[in-house]
Simulated assay, not measured.
Amino acid sequence: MVNIILPIDFGDKTEQLVDGAVRFAKEVNGKIHLIHVAPSDIGFAIGDMGFQYFPEVEQNEIREELVQLNKIEQRVLAQDVECEHYLKQGIAKDIILEYAKAKGANYIVMGSHGRSGFYDVFVGSLTKGLTKNSPIPVLVIPIHDN
């Protein structure tokens, strides 16, 4: 079985990315390993008293993200593709590569919105970072506005 790592960010193009990964998984007899990397600073806020940590905000956000991951997993399973999910907080590129190695991944599937220039300079591109640093092949699925 081919192990496919599919990072999910719950963006507006997530469904298109999942659909592309499912098609690929069916072609190669693959299992999809969904992963969402939550930021380490979810529960932090800045206000009049400086930085404050709100663990209940972090717990609620993580709980909601797990619900969303489970829904995506169920959607993939309903299309007769094996699937599991994983959520961890940290630096996305590092966590994804660690997870891919632990799962013996054959591919990492990422989406590309086709942005460049200032977007990459100011926001950065996880897909770009993974393609430059991954020892595992990265399949990039173009995601476009319809």
Rank of each mutant, 00 (worst) to 15 (best):
L97D: 03
T127H: 01
R63D: 08
R75Q: 07
E98L: 10
P137E: 00
E64C: 02
V67G: 02
E84R: 14
G111H: 07
T127A: 04
I91K: 15
Y99K: 15
Y107W: 14
P137M: 01
L77C: 05
K101W: 11
L87E: 02
S116Q: 12
T131M: 13
F122T: 12
V57T: 06
N106F: 06
I72H: 03
A102F: 09
I91C: 04
T131P: 05
C83E: 10
P135T: 13
I91V: 15
Q79T: 07
V123L: 12
K88H: 14
Q59P: 00
Y99L: 11
I108W: 09
S112H: 03
F54R: 03
L77A: 12
P55Y: 02
T131Y: 07
V76T: 08
R63I: 00
D94H: 14
Q89T: 15
R63T: 07
L139V: 09
G111L: 05
A78V: 04
P55G: 02
R75K: 12
V123F: 11
V109R: 10
A92F: 11
D120A: 12
Y107R: 08
L97I: 10
V109L: 15
Q89G: 15
V140K: 03
K88L: 13
I141M: 07
A92H: 08
E61C: 03
E58C: 00
S134K: 09
E73I: 00
V76L: 08
E64L: 08
Q89A: 15
I62S: 00
K128W: 01
A105D: 08
Y107H: 14
K128G: 11
L130S: 06
E82D: 13
E56I: 00
P142Q: 03
G90N: 10
N60L: 04
F118G: 01
S134W: 10
G104F: 13
L87D: 01
R115I: 06
I141P: 02
E73H: 07
R115W: 05
N60H: 04
V67S: 05
K71I: 03
S134R: 09
E65V: 02
I108Y: 09
S116V: 07
V67C: 00
G117N: 11
G129D: 14
V123R: 10
I96T: 06
S125Y: 03
Q74L: 13
V81I: 11
E64W: 08
G114C: 09
N133Y: 09
I95A: 14
Y99P: 08
E58S: 05
I96Q: 06
L97M: 15
E82F: 10
V67K: 13
I141T: 01
K103L: 07
D94K: 14
G104N: 14
I62M: 04
I91M: 13
E73G: 03
R115H: 14
S112P: 07
K103Q: 15
L87W: 02
K93Y: 13
E82W: 08
F118K: 11
A92T: 14
V57G: 01
V81N: 10
S125L: 03
V81E: 09
F118C: 04
S116D: 12
G104S: 11
A105T: 11
E65P: 00
I136F: 03
S125A: 02
G90L: 09
S134C: 06
G117R: 12
T131W: 04
E84H: 13
P55D: 02
A105V: 09
I143F: 02
V140S: 02
M110N: 06
E82R: 12
